[in-house]
């Protein structure tokens, strides 16, 4: 199955200049599976999203469909076929 990942401008540099990446995952797949594949194919991008322990960084939000993954089942959130996964920085700063 194919999953589309949308990236903010600030991460495009770590994805070969692309704002959208498509990944083929074997179903059933979780968000961890998707992030593992990102890490394998785009290591610079992968470590922007997760730290060395595998945890999603504190101010990184990963939406699976309409919902932020922390409000679902975290890294174990199922990623359905044809899902769109949005990566965004938290609303923070000043």
């Amino acid at each position: 199955m194919t999953v589309l990942v949308r990236l903010p401008q600030s991460l495009a540099v770590d994805a070969g200049g692309q704002h959208e990446l498509a990944f083929d995952l074997a179903p059933p797949a979780s968000l961890a599976d998707l992030l593992d594949q990102i890490q394998a194919l785009h290591p610079a991008l992968g470590r922007r999203l997760r730290d060395e322990t595998g945890a999603v960084r504190r101010f990184v939000n990963v939406y699976v469909g309409e919902d932020e993954s922390r409000a679902l089942n975290g890294l174990q959130t199922p990623v359905p076929a044809d899902a769109v996964v949005l990566v965004a920085g938290s609303v923070a700063g000043g």
């Binding site: 290591p43 610079a44 730290d51 060395e52 322990t53 595998g54």
Partner: peptide, 15 residues
């Protein structure tokens, strides 16, 4: 690409 300073995964620590 893999970063300049990163803990090995088995240590369970993050920079």
């Amino acid at each position: 690409e893999a970063g300049a300073v990163t803990f090995p995964p088995e240590l369970g620590a993050a920079v």
